[in-house]
Nucleic acid binder design. Sequence first.
RNA 1: GCCCCCAUCGACUAGCGGCCUAGGUCCCCACCCUUUCAAGGUGGUAACACGGGUUCGAAUCCCGUUGGGGGUACCA
Length: 548
Amino acid sequence: MPHATVPTDVVDSLFAADLPEPAHWEATYGPRDHPSDALVTRFGPSPTGFVHVGGLYTAMISRDLARATGGTFFVRIEDTDRAREVAGAREQFARAFAYLDIESDEDDETGAYGPYSQSQRGPIYETYVRELLRAGRAYPCFCTREELAARAAEQRRASLPTGYYGEWAPCRELPPEEVVARLQRGDPYAVRFRSPGEAQARVTFVDAIRGAIEQDDNRNDAIVLKSSAEPLRLPTYHFAHAVDDHLMRVNLVVRAEEWISSVPLHLQLFAALEFDQIDYAHVAPLMKTEGSSRRKLSKRKDPEASVDFYVATGYPSRAVVHYLRGLANSRLADMDFEEAAREPLRLDEMGVAGPLVDLAKLESVSRNWIATLSAEEVYREVLAWARDHDPELAEVLVRERDVAVRALAVEREGAENPRKDLAKWSEFREAYSFFFAELFEPVPAEDARFSPVDAATVRALAADFADRYEHDADPDTWFAQIRAVAAAHSFAATVGEFKADPARYVGSVREAANVIRVAVTGRTKSPDLYEISRVLGGDELLRRVRLV
RNA sequence: GCCCCCAUCGACUAGCGGCCUAGGUCCCCACCCUUUCAAGGUGGUAACACGGGUUCGAAUCCCGUUGGGGGUACCA
């Protein structure tokens, strides 16, 4: 490298005198005690916002890969951007991980490769920055953000690749005397990597999902250590990735597709640092439609990007997990829940195009999942959800536990094909609240839910039904009461009869039954009326019918 | 602008040169079942982006076009 370098003593004077040498860190973080084919993977959420499902999705894949090979999966907080950090992000991470059952194998208390937050790893990064500086493979850059922005704009105007390279890299070949002088004067500086990339050069790497990918080599002298003007001296993602994943002995980096274009830089960094190369798997991002086109799911714009959305809406976590895993490996989508959960996710089954997250599909998965639960289990889940998201409902559920469980048992417990009326816990209120006297809202006879039956007929029918009502009856006898009032008010006995001669009737027994249903439940969709009457009791049922 | 990734029904996908007049699931529609609404059952609509090659044979391989996505930060 035919460039003048800053004297070592000047470089060293920029760092603490007792800053360890690389050998120290290498010794501290020795090779892991794993079989040779075990994968060590990690997930690195950044507290600049909530982790979104796309992130959790790659975390699930990383975790499975490690587990399936007897390796290790860990979470490392990538908090090197303190300016954009948002409050509460770490708490949200914890909620999200717990919800999707993603657990780090090691952390600050239990792991030997910590700290597990990048902001705590300052000295480690400094050691390697100093190393690069000493070797002349990095250099101090005094350019201001304004100068950088102006240059980038000019490059764009000239249709040149943007970046810090060649004639656009004034600090790259600064005379050592000047560097020393400015350093001693205390000018703020960032540290840039001196990229060995040459114009026209191409690099190839093998992605574990996509195979060989060839692209232009990196020529940009990327920043590795942010400005000395910052209160906490931190590295950029690229540098932290190289140092951390090497020292934490990661051997497979699973990350989103948007990182593919920085692989050339990462390769150069690993080589300059004399680290062994590690493998990459770039996962297609989860998408979302916007108008007629689609785009990457966005934290800012899309509520369904946040795990909190699924929690708040009350999607059962097992359903979300099953859905997401089915997106990653479609083979799992067709398996039942138990079986799919046992199958580890595989890289060679991953799709390369970004899938759309489809809430309708999720709901279907969710409905099927809830249908596997007993009334008791559903009760517990709904209650747990309601405590956080619908306190009024939670109160009722606690007070009326027995009614709730009996209500949930209708067409569920012992049913050959359980009723799939719940896709998420938040739907419980809408679907079941009428079982509770205090949550029931009477429907006036004029209400559209009674249509096509007119208000006068609704009142007459209801009154008649109430007058003759016998509560203690077997299902057939009980329903015969509806048939009787239906006939008395000119409803056809069957749908067929009505269709055969519509002019003769007000409607069929279907419409008549609907009047009773709406009067009793307030809804046009409900479970079996007879069973509802058993849960409600004769008095409450009569009270409601008389309210019309 | 430059670089990279991607392309099968509305959605998720199966397919990895002949088993494909393209299969499954979700959605949607119809019918059946049912004293009601669901559930369930049966059936249906619906796709290989386009153009060139290669080959006896292409959804599958190659090239190009178009379209979509991403990167090009002292954000990750």
